[in-house]
Design a protein around this nucleic acid. Structure first.
Lengths: 224, 224
DNA sequence: CGGAGCCTTGAACGGTTTCAAAAGTAGTGG
DNA sequence: CCACTACTTTTGAAACCGTTCAAGGCTCCG
């Protein structure tokens, strides 16, 4: 349902841009918008930078990465095609608290802050949709914290592969990415996946992970 | 700075209510608002309930509690006087994902959803302030997750008592509350506090905790 | 074909939790 | 005002889960 609303938001904003672009006649893109192509590993923005606007993902997948004091890195949020990024820092009027890295080759449309604000002024209802989106992200983050504190690694990894493969099925999730997503380490993820495979819950074919018993995995994820 | 903005928001909303109440003449409170007094331990709302509106804290302290699958409880967010609660679920149009418990005797003004929406309609700018507030809460939750994953207990406890005693200095924080806030256990918090006291960084007088070397504590919190 | 990045495995270590039991503290009602 | 009850604090010892470090093999891509 979040997806539907976001789609509406996207549509409205891009309708607006469509009008703007037509008015500007020959200009390829409206002033204040730009398109970037990122290869896997390239970053869209960096921790500490001041947000310049909003970023819409057209194609691909971007992860928000934070590196903790010990140097370990953590995937705290994801954005795929038709989702946006950079809104938190923009609306909080703060520096970016994470680095946005492309997990696949990705195409991004960036919209300047000025235009975003103008769009919101034109359709005030949009801010309620944004509020809804951020509120849902807040829930996910807060419950994620509880998972991290209360569940053992197996449960967290089960939870993670269910979430990641359901919500971002096209992406080839690496063990490292799974580890960074669930707050663990690569060796532990590998061992756990091996255990799950031995129990017939998943199947591994090289880097590919296939879920065989979704229900059992879900139970593992919810329980201890 | 969040505080200032929130204050503005509160002021605007209550100004609105003030007008409303006067118009209603003899009615003690406008339709759709109510006042409740909660004793320590009483709950304002419960996980799974459908949000009825927004709650403003007039006096006291409320904690959002989630209990994980193992039965342990976690303090995921706090709201003191002049702050509000219930906004996340309200704007996400979801059930409450946590239970709101009074940590002290607390006085709460609750405003119905209908009135909140009318207020926002009247002053669309308010939704930008709300967006800012939720965005900052999102940052806190996401970075909190990284802390939990990357820092050892000592660092997290140092971080917690700095945060809690700075932001909510009037409250008598129990070891249990500190444990639930930083994702640890009561015995561990006690041992860690004892260690910090032995190192002369804090002083304990019964249940009272006094920070002696703020800088050292900060260093402990930031480092490993 | 070469190199970077990812996967895999082993063994050892260490930090936290867990459980339990006792002492302290606060708040309640007779 | 005291006694009772419930909650919080405190401490010990044992167990365990997951990390860490290191080294070798694999895979994909240029």
């Amino acid at each position: 349902m979040l997806g539907v609303r976001k789609w509406q938001l996207m549509k409205e904003i891009f309708t607006f841009f469509g009008e703007k672009i037509e008015a500007d006649a020959q200009i390829e893109l409206a002033k204040g918008t730009s398109v970037r192509n990122l290869k896997r590993g390239e970053q869209l923005y960096c921790t500490g930078e001041i947000p310049t606007g909003l970023h819409f993902i057209r194609k691909g997948l971007i992860g928000l990465v934070v590196s903790g004091p010990t140097g370990n890195e953590y995937l705290i949020r994801l954005a795929k095609a038709d989702q946006y990024l950079g809104h938190r820092s923009l609306f909080a009027a703060e520096e970016h608290h994470a680095t946005a890295v492309a997990l696949e080759d990705t195409e991004v449309v960036s919209v300047s802050k000025a235009i975003v604000l103008r769009v919101i002024e034109t359709w005030p209802k949009i801010s309620l949709l944004l509020l809804e989106a951020v509120s849902k992200e807040l829930k996910q983050a807060e419950l994620g914290r509880v998972s991290l504190a209360d569940k053992n690694v197996t449960a967290r990894i089960a939870e993670s592969i269910l979430f990641l493969k359901t919500r971002y099925p096209e992406h080839q999730w690496t063990r490292r990415e799974i580890a960074e997503f669930c707050g663990s380490t690569t060796p532990t993820v590998i061992r756990t996946l091996a255990k799950l495979e031995a129990e017939g819950i998943i199947r591994q074919e090289g880097r590919i992970i296939e879920i065989l018993k979704r229900a059992t995995l879900l139970q593992l994820a919810e329980n201890l």
